[in-house]
Every structure is written in structure tokens, then in C-alpha cells.
């Protein structure tokens, strides 16, 4: 069925917005062609008015921006689920965070994990410059890593091992956080990334 000028214009505008929303995507033209093909396919239903079919089809696809976000999120999370790149994981979880509470949780876990790792690395790097103040202190106040507690009476127990230990802890933070967030992403892909309407 051939759409009239107004309906054809609606379809063209939808596809144009979709193309713009996909800016930078590798398979942009292929994705646009597939959505165009889908709309044309729907128009072959001769039992209903064309404008009604187009309205229903575009509604089922969602706005062009939301549709593009779904493509991007699926693709990004797919790559992130197997990567060890902190930047890619941060990008993926940031995008995921915009779509729901689980993504928000994953983003903050990642952020805090990497923040702690950065803290360990920085303290290892600063140890030679603040040898008397940085350490693993045990004393009346309990124990603590990093700056010497005020009041004195605490003993530093790691000595020259402080830098290697904090570097190892930083690595553990990075690896643990990365693996945990990758597991969250894989879990999402298995159960919640797909959205069926009942």
C-alpha cells in the first residue's frame, strides 16, 4: 500500500531523527534500512487505513531517540560484558544508569570500586614523600590505613611493605569491581535487558 504525502513525510521524518540519534554508530545505515523495511512491510497490511498502520508501527518502535538508545545500550553492554577496560565499563554503566535502578547501582559500585583503587595507588605513590605519616596504623584507636591518626601511640606495621600491599589492594579493587560489574551486566543481559510486553 502506498502512503499519501503526509504519511510518507511522517515516515521520512521518523527515519531522519533515527539516523541523527544513531550518529557515530558503526552500522547506522544498515539499522535505518532495516527499520524502513519493517515499516514498509507493515504497510502491506491492506485491512486498515495507512495512517493508522503508520501510527501504530511508529508507536511500537518507540521514539527514534529511544529506539537508538536501545540499540546503543544493547551494543555497549555487550562489549562491556567481556571487557577489562575501565573506561568502556564506565561508559556502559553510565548509559545503563539512565535506564533504571540496577544500572544506577552498577554505576556507583564501579565508581566507588575504582575510587578506592585510585586511593590505594595514590597512597603507594606518596609513601616515599610522607614516610612518617602514611602507613597501616594499629593502636588504641583500632587500626587504619593511610594517614597517621592524631594523638600518637599508634604503630605502623607494614613498613617497607606498605607500597606493595597498597598496590596489590588497588589491583584487587580494580579486578574485583570489574568482575562484579561484568557479572551484573551479564545477569542483566540474561534476564532483564530484553523487554517483552505481556
Amino acid at each position: 500500500m502506498t502512503p499519501d504525502m503526509k504519511t510518507a513525510d511522517t515516515i521520512d521524518r521518523y527515519l531522519l531523527r533515527f539516523r541523527l540519534a544513531l550518529a557515530g554508530a558503526k552500522d547506522k545505515e544498515e539499522l535505518v534500512s532495516e527499520i524502513r523495511s519493517h515499516i514498509v512491510e507493515r504497510l502491506e497490511d491492506h485491512s486498515r487505513p495507512v495512517d493508522e498502520i503508520v501510527h501504530d508501527t511508529l508507536s511500537a518502535l518507540g521514539t527514534p531517540e529511544i529506539l537508538a538508545t536501545r540499540y546503543r545500550t544493547e551494543g555497549l553492554l555487550e562489549r562491556a560484558s567481556t571487557t577489562m577496560s575501565p573506561l568502556l565499563l564506565l561508559r556502559a554503566t553510565m548509559r545503563w544508569a539512565m535506564t533504571g535502578i540496577r544500572g544506577f547501582f552498577a554505576f556507583w559500585v564501579l565508581f566507588l570500586g575504582y575510587f578506592m583503587a585510585a586511593g590505594f595507588y595514590v597512597s603507594a605513590a606518596l609513601k616515599p614523600f610522607f614516610a612518617d605519616r602514611l602507613g597501616f596504623w594499629v593502636g588504641d584507636h583500632g587500626f587504619g590505613i593511610m594517614l597517621r591518626p592524631s594523638g600518637g601511640g599508634d604503630t605502623e606495621i607494614l613498613g617497607m611493605w606498605f607500597a606493595p600491599v597498597t598496590l596489590a589492594l588497588g589491583c584487587l579493587c580494580i579486578i574485583g569491581t570489574t568482575k562484579f560489574v561484568r557479572w551484573l551486566i551479564s545477569k542483566r543481559r540474561r534476564t532483564n535487558s530484553t523487554t517483552a510486553t505481556a
Binding site: L31, G62, I66, R70, E74, T194, A196
Partner: peptide, 19 residues
């Protein structure tokens, strides 16, 4: 009994292809 919105299906197909 699965009714899937078009806007959901195509990104999944694309992801399965990329996988």
C-alpha cells in the same frame, strides 16, 4: 504467548548478531 514490541525486538536481533 510472547508479544514483543518492535522497538524491543530489533535491538535484540542486532545484539545477537553482534554476539
Amino acid at each position: 504467548d510472547l508479544t514483543v514490541a518492535e522497538g524491543t525486538l530489533y535491538p535484540i536481533l542486532n545484539r545477537l548478531r553482534v554476539e
